[in-house]
Design a protein around this nucleic acid. Structure first.
Lengths: 210, 210
DNA sequence: GATTCATATGAAGCTCCATTCACATGATAT
DNA sequence: ATATCATGTGAATGGAGCTTCATATGAATC
């Protein structure tokens, strides 16, 4: 947790520190990121940095906290409230589309988030035990989908939840590689959803008899 | 490229160096990995290390080269030769199952490979341009599957290739988290394939009329 | 205007490594 | 046995970067 001195800072200066930190952590892993670069980027003295934070990790945890808050704001806004009104695939479409928007609008935040998932030790230190994972969320969604009759009841919710999470990551990945795919965002999402909904098997032959 | 002195080493000693390097790179990112730990692990003097390698990166690239060779051996063996005899989903099942076996039998190699995909700069330095990606491979497979009539011809092969790659990663991920899923390997793979083949929509209702 | 308190500063101090160096060792050739 | 060559060694060297420290600045209070 940053010290009081940090929160007492004028908004503009505090924001400069946050921005500089996001820049550095987005470019380099936690271990590679340099406190000196952050201080310089924010236009503060090295000594000041340690007036504001215990150490580098203290700042990093704070930044992660901000990212989580912001991401949840993107995903959650009103959606959970109206959850009952939508079918499974509508909800999934909404989740993916909001996740993609977050990735496009805050690519540096996305990069930091991804870098954290690649560092297990740090990940646990940041989140402790109460890891409200993306998996948990999808599991609940799947349970509801099965209960509502939208989904094949024989699927394994734990496995599928993980797969949906991974596909969500895949989506974010496309953002980094512009031009790889000549599609607009909703088109990508709809094609992904089509895979999730129907698979990729050729049904034309099989359904001939219907 | 390691120096001649390295390749002139007795096999046993050369292997000790390779093993020590794999241990260290599997535990820590390239940047965090310590030459001192590798030298100590291999039972050689620091000076010797620099008789064998230009620097830390020289060794790292060599290790990656070994990993790629070994992984290809797992995946490729005879399979590509018999490709024509199998349908798309049989091939995919085979690929996933071999990938999973590699992950289970060589978890440290898997970890190093994953860590490399998380470091774009290093990744490009190691592979240069001729990045024979997993994507390319799946694209060809998909093209064949469509040509053979196994797959829905309206899918987007580029997008789906990426999704199949990500699902392959997801599979490897499960290996790390034992117990999360109470299934044996082939069961996981078959459930994944079922998602890919048929999606997760509940067809019972829709097919009632058939 | 002196004291106190909070904050600012950048130059040390320190630790951790990668890399180098000056000096063995030991084999092979002369 | 001496010279030459390849290899081995671990103690310097040096740089990078986190953290601390001694000292300023400046506002608020007495």
């Amino acid at each position: 947790m940053p010290k009081d001195t940090f929160f007492n800072l004028p908004d503009e200066k505090r924001q400069r520190v946050i921005d500089a930190a996001i820049d550095e952590f987005a470019e380099r892993s936690f271990h590679e990121a340099r406190v000196t670069a952050i201080a310089e980027g924010a236009g503060i003295a090295m000594g000041s940095f340690y007036q504001y934070f215990e150490d580098k990790k203290d700042l990093f945890k704070y930044i992660i906290e901000l990212i989580v808050k912001e991401k949840l704001a993107y995903i959650n806004q009103d959606m959970m409230a109206n959850m009952q009104n939508y079918g499974f695939f509508q909800l999934l479409r909404e989740i993916y589309s909001r996740g993609l928007r977050f990735a496009k609008e805050r690519p540096r935040l996305l990069a930091i988030g991804l870098s954290l998932t690649n560092n297990e030790a740090l990940y646990h230190e940041v989140y402790g035990d109460h890891v409200q994972t993306s998996d948990d969320f999808f599991r609940k969604l799947l349970a509801k989908g099965i209960a509502d009759g939208d989904l094949d009841p024989t699927i394994d919710p734990i496995l599928v939840a993980r797969l949906l999470t991974m596909l969500n990551y895949a989506l974010a990945d496309f953002v980094y590689e512009d031009g790889k795919l000549d599609l607009d965002d909703m088109e990508i999402i709809d094609k992904m959803l089509n895979l999730i909904e129907n698979g990729i098997k050729n049904r034309a032959a099989a359904l001939g008899g219907c």
